[in-house]
Design a protein around this nucleic acid. Structure first.
Length: 408
DNA sequence: ACTCCACAGGAAAATTGGGGTA
DNA sequence: TACCCCAATTTTCCTGTGGAGT
């Protein structure tokens, strides 16, 4: 007896495979990004003639196609002149020090075996890289995804260094493509970096729902026969994606999960209902992931807010929350933090969208934030209690020996 | 009109923790 | 091992504030 027997999807057979809707899929056609593509190609065209090209900064929210389009355009460029160009893609969230970036570039350009992961000084790698580039007559394109992280962390030192490579050393023509979702990125730059960076900016505006539909439909048609999905389900995905600041990734994820859910049910057709279910699933996933990565204290604060809400349904204030927080800390055996700190944690939780607060003045009775939980409290509680350090707390709660409201 | 609560949130001092170094 | 350094985190101290009570 094969345990997988019950997952037979006679009802819904896929023509292609689902990877076309996955995050790693790199499409080769980009509806509604023609202008951006041609402008990028324009800016980089001088590389075809072996000349320097301008640097590019791409602005746009998540899921507006910056990264995919960049990968597409750069790969098309290397198709044209494969032996004269090296593209080096770096996500600055993972590599954010001058050193790690330099190692990374040197390895892509000259081959990983020639540079040890550590041990060399930054200067040595730099020299080696510049020499290597001169030697092999290659142009270099450095793609810096999420450049804002780079500037945030070390004030643009890394960027300065990279500019030097593409600037100073004769015989090398290269360019930098910076990708960011921070519209004020350029203003935040160090003046000495800014003056060197003669750049062109390209904006990737959010997709609206019709545009998102144009993105979704071809992909769905590629994997599903017409009568296996409601067109309105596709529109719904597009509409939800459009609400989320025009996020194509979101729309695509929704569609994928909706298909998965439909298959799991062995249903015949992808309907609006499945899209809604998919949205709930994704939301819960995100919430769980957010809570899981919270620091322990933050989780305790979140629990305090939840418990506080159970006692006084609509009047959780900072003071009450930190009172409960102190008790919880005692129960778990963790030394509590100051109220000042709790206040900051509350702001963080609000930024994460787990709670919402309103500043309200209660006249004689002071001025405070009214705190509410957004979303399913029970799920939140469960996820918060998954923390290793909060084990004891969940046991206590299960035994119902719990009393909170004394001396609040 | 004036007071004063219960905080918000800025600034600066203090603590902590990881790493280096003599 | 003892010491120092640096950065991040946290505490301490602070000033500011909307409006119910008086």
């Amino acid at each position: 007896m094969n345990p997988f027997d019950r997952y037979q999807f006679e009802s819904l057979s896929l023509k292609g495979d689902l990877s076309i809707l996955s995050a790693t899929h790199e499409p080769d056609n980009f509806p509604h990004r023609e202008e951006q593509i041609s402008r990028m190609a324009d800016a980089m065209s001088s590389l075809l003639m072996g000349m320097k090209s301008t640097h590019l900064i791409l602005y746009g929210k998540t899921g507006t196609g910056k990264t995919s389009v960049t990968k597409f355009v750069t790969s098309k460029l290397s198709e044209k002149i494969p032996d004269r160009i090296r593209v080096c893609y770096i996500n600055c969230q993972n590599y954010d020090s001058p050193y790690s970036i330099m190692v990374n570039i040197a390895r892509t350009v000259l081959g990983p075996e020639r540079i040890p992961q550590m041990g060399w000084t930054l200067d040595r790698i730099y020299e080696y890289l510049v020499d290597g580039l001169k030697g092999c007559q290659k142009n270099i394109i450095i793609v810096l995804d999420e450049v804002d992280k780079l500037v945030e962390k070390n004030g643009g030192d890394s960027l300065y260094l990279l500019l030097k490579i593409t600037d100073e050393s004769q015989g090398i023509s290269g360019s930098i493509i910076g990708i960011t979702n921070d519209t004020s990125f350029y203003e935040k730059l160090d003046p000495r970096v800014r003056s060197r960076l003669n750049k062109e900016s390209i904006v990737f505006p959010p997709y609206n729902s019709e545009q998102l539909r144009d993105i979704l439909l071809p992909r769905i048609k590629a994997i599903l026969p017409e009568d296996y999905y409601d067109e309105s389900a596709v529109n719904l995905c597009a509409a939800i994606g459009a609400q989320e600041h025009g996020d194509a990734r979101k729309a695509i994820d929704l569609m994928r999960v909706a298909i998965e859910l439909t298959m799991r049910d062995s249903a015949k057709k992808i309907t609006n209902d499945y899209v809604y279910k998919a949205r709930d699933n994704l939301e819960i996933d995100i919430m769980r992931e957010t809570i899981k990565t919270l620091p322990t204290h933050s989780k305790i604060v979140l629990l305090s807010v939840i418990l506080c809400g159970e006692i006084h349904p609509n009047s959780a204030t900072t003071g009450e929350v930190s009172a409960i927080y102190n008790k919880l800390c005692k129960q778990v055996g963790i030394t509590p933090l100051t109220q000042r700190r709790i206040s900051d944690y509350l702001s963080d939780l609000e930024d994460f969208g787990l709670i919402s607060t309103t500043l309200k003045s209660l006249g004689r009775y002071g001025r405070t934030r009214l705190i509410r939980i957004t979303g399913r409290e029970n799920d939140m509680k469960r996820y918060a209690l998954e923390d290793q350090d909060l084990k004891t707390l969940s046991e206590i709660k299960q035994n119902r020996q719990y009393k909170l409201d004394e001396n609040l």
